[in-house]
Amino acid sequence: MSQKIFLLILFVVIMVFGFFVKNPFILNMMSLAALSVIVVTGLNLLLGFAGQISLGHAGFVAMGAYISAVFSVKFNINPWVAIVLAVFITSLFGAVIGYPTLKLKSHYLAMATLAIGEIIHSVVNNYVDLTGGPQGLTGIPMLSFFGFSFDSEIKFYIFVWTLTFLLILMSINLVNSRFGRAYKAIKSKENAAYAFGINVHFYKVFIFTVSVFYASLAGALYAFYLGFISPSSFGLIQSIDYVVMVVIGGMGSFFGVFFTSVILTILPNILTSLEDYWPIANGLLLILAMMFMPNGLKGLFKWIK
C-alpha cells in the first residue's frame, strides 16, 4: 500500500472519530495529540532521516508559543499574524543557532541542543515582564477566521488535524524526493555524501530549520488553543518525550511515530495520578527500545511502501 493512501485512510478515520465522539475531554486530548504529532513529525525528519539529534525541541515549541502569545496579548496583534511572525522568528533563530551547532556531532550535538533548550526555558522563566515568568501567561485570545471562531472542541479538532495531515504529507513528499535520498546518505555515510555533491552542513542546518518550523507552529497553536501557557510545559523532560516518541515509533517511520506520539500524549493525560512515574517509564522505554528493538515500531508498518 502506498504511504499516501494509508495517510488518507488515517485522515478519514480521525475525521470520522471526531464527528462521532462528543466528549469534549477526549477531543481536547486528541487535539493536543495532533500538536505532538506535528512536533514529532518535524523531529523525525531531523533525527530519523538526517540522523541528527536534538534535545532542545521543547524550547522551540516554547518560542513559538510565547512569541505569538506575547505579540497577541501585549501588543494586540492579530493572532494569525502573531502565529506567522512567531513561526518565522523562531525558524530564523533555529537557522542561526543551527549553523554553529550542527558542526558538532553525536553526543556533542546532543549536549549543545540540550543547552539551547535550557537557554530558551530559562529566558522564558526569567523575563517576567513579558512572559509572566513561572506563573505563566494568561488571556491569550481564541483563534477566529473571518468571524468563524474556533470556539468548540470539534472545530479546533478538525482544523488542527487537517493541518497535521498536510504537514505529514509534505514530509513524506520531501523524503521521497532527491532531498530525502540526500538525507539518508548524510545519516549513514556522511563522507560519501560530499562526493555526490551534497553540501552536508547546509543540508543539516536546513532540515534542523524545518523541524524548528514544525515545532514552533505547534507551539503557537498550542498557546491559542489553551489560552494559557507556562514554562513548565516546555522543559527538558518534554524535549526528551519528543525523542522518545520518535525512537519508539521507529526513526524514519512516519506512521510508527504518528501512533507513538498520539498514544504517549494521551496516556499521561488519562493516568494523571501516575505523573511522577512517567520519566521512569520513558527512560525504561528508551533503554529497552535501544537494546531490543532498535527499529521501534517501524517493523509493524513495513507493508506501507
Binding site: 546532543a110 520519566p279 520513558n282 527512560g283 528508551l286 533503554i287
Partner: peptide, 24 residues
C-alpha cells in the same frame, strides 16, 4: 549488550538511563 550499537543509539540509551535515574 545493545544490539548493533551505533553512536546515536548509545546516546539515546544514556539519555534513557539518566531520565530513568532522575525519575526514580
Amino acid at each position: 549488550k545493545t544490539k548493533n550499537a551505533n553512536e546515536l543509539s548509545l546516546i539515546i540509551m544514556t539519555i534513557g538511563i539518566s531520565i530513568f535515574l532522575r525519575g526514580v
